[in-house]
Nucleic acid binder design. Structure first.
Lengths: 343, 343
DNA sequence: TTGTAGGCGTTATCAA
DNA sequence: TTGATAACGCCTACAA
């Protein structure tokens, strides 16, 4: 079913059908009705591919996500959902590309086949080949996250540095003198994953500012790792009374280790960090944390990308979001751990 | 940069460039090299939109997901990831459409604009308008889930009925005489959500078969709801010693309620159900459960869809997956609850 | 108010 | 071995 068939059956030219649909030039009411009747009868819908070829744009955004093998975190999923949602609101479709690893062909198709009008890139490393590739392609793109050269691209990001720094300050205010940062996995840190590095930076800075002793550990992104990691921390360091973390996935295990050590939260031990709001509230006790604004970030990324598509020459824009820390139930005044508390 | 430009610069016809790239007809080695040199120099990539128009297919699959407003469960996310992954392996791209609610335009674009070669539909209701719409469109599609008329479409699904029935049998074998089914939310049940209904059916059947007393409750998909739901169950029914559930999201709260009631798992109380493997293992104690094979289902759905696209006239295929129950740490022999155990 | 014709970038048929 | 040309389905400038 195509526009020619509709034209033939309504006894008009193809262009008349096109104009009747787009309204870009007046069509006699009588003609319009006749055309509409045929369209309704045959259930005609214009072919999006042909329209895209003609117009030179696809009304589709590419979303480059981490490959499925590495399980997406709650937060990353929040981004995907919010991007798709924001795009749908703007009547744009979203083409998903699991990049990295074995699926470079998928990335390459999206970037170089003109299948999309622009790209949103997730999980950006401090040094990231995909950013270089996209810059060469001249395809408009926006990062959720950024590289070590922030000015080379447009991005939205979470200000982990400020957030973790805020956590340390909050804990210091409560009298904690020895605080641990439980970071993301050692692999991610080694790979130059920005959030992990910036969390480190904020932690170190704030600890220095407050004269607090800080311990940094990396931890894989799962509950089991969180548990063994905190067990080790508690055993090694009897003076430790609080943890700040950006590792949401490991947190259930961390709670378990604390509980196993006979420590009450927040009576004996405080824990805080960065997490999705719903998730933080579902914990027990609910987590004092900076609530990650996934919706907001995704929506902003889409909006920024739409603008770049419209005016590619525009200077790059950056948005660093640092939501306030929501006080809930997991932080309290420091209290020295009794010897018996240790594992 | 288009094929004409490459042809001009290499001093050959457009068709020769096309054939040099596709290999569909022999091209003199010398010519081929000259063309390749120009292509490399200019970084030419064929325009996927033009190719799609010419070939009549887009090499893209549509994936219809629940809208972002309703948070996706771990399992649903597993489907998305595995579908995207399987599609990438077949060199197919995936177009995401958050359907239902406010985004019907997105669904309509995907279905009727010939933007995709086929569709995978998630979260199917027993009566589902989208299935009817897709059938009318004659676009090949495969469901993850199915309607009340299984034969009208191709699908893959989880056999919740068999799984929950298996859970009940397992609990009955352990001597439990009063068992509760914690189902998904009342809204979903009312909306005719298949898995919820089939879980009900399997529960009722197995309870009858074993002469066990079964209690059914609906529960919203979050930890808080799980907690209050189980608190009520324990208070109302002192004889209750075990729970089977398909509500993964509510489970942390359910554990909390059991623990608060002073009951040990699995010593005093057993709990089992259906959940993602990684998730089940991360619980404490690890959950005895049927491990949801999200990867497998997604991959099968893609494979089935590819086959339907190739041969649309083929009879519908169905795949019902019932993974075995993995014995872990949350089920044990029934033991009468002592009066003091109750809340 | 409507029709004709050309072109978006490809691929495939027919000729040479 | 290669070139010219039509066609995929749509939009739009130009002509009537």
């Amino acid at each position: 079913m195509n526009i020619g068939e509709i034209a033939r059956r309504s006894g008009v030219a193809r262009s008349t059908v096109s104009y009747a649909l787009s309204g870009k030039r007046p069509v006699a009411e009588e003609t319009r009705r006749r055309i509409q009747a045929v369209i309704d009868e045959l259930g005609y819908q214009p072919n999006a591919t042909a329209k895209a070829l003609k117009e030179g744009r696809t009304r589709t955004l590419g979303l480059v996500i981490p490959p499925a093998s590495r399980r997406l975190t709650d937060l990353q999923l929040g981004f995907v959902a919010s991007v798709v949602d924001a795009a749908a609101r703007a009547d744009l479709d979203v083409l998903l590309s699991p990049s990295g690893g074995e699926h470079d062909r998928s990335f390459e198709r999206v970037v170089s086949g003109r299948r999309v009008d622009g790209v949103i890139l997730m999980e950006i490393r401090l040094e990231d080949d995909r950013v270089a590739r996209l810059r060469r392609s001249r395809l408009p793109f926006v990062g959720i996250g950024h590289t070590s050269r922030p000015d080379e691209m447009s991005w939205v990001d979470v200000d982990y540095e400020t957030l973790i720094s805020g956590c340390v300050h909050h804990l210091a205010d409560l009298g904690h003198r020895r605080i641990a940062l439980v970071n993301r996995s050692a692999e991610l840190v080694a790979a130059g994953y920005g959030p992990a590095h910036r969390a480190q930076a904020g932690f170190t800075r704030a600890a220095a500012e407050r004269g607090v002793e800080g311990v940094e550990v990396c931890c894989a992104d799962d509950a089991r790792a969180g548990q063994s990691c905190v067990e080790r921390l508690l055993a090694d360091d009897p003076g430790l009374t609080a943890i700040a973390t950006i590792n949401e996935a490991a947190m259930p295990g961390m709670f378990r280790a604390i509980e196993r050590a006979g420590l009450a939260v927040p009576g004996d031990f405080s824990i805080t960090g960065v997490a999705a709001r719903l998730w933080a509230e579902s914990l027990h006790p609910p987590l004092t944390a900076a609530d990650m604004p996934a919706d907001e970030l995704g929506a902003h990324a889409v909006e920024m990308l739409i603008q770049r598509i419209a005016e590619p020459a525009t200077p790059h824009r950056h948005l660093l979001v640092a939501p306030p820390i929501s006080l809930r139930g997991t932080t309290g005044p420091a209290r020295p751990r009794k010897p018996g508390d240790q594992v």
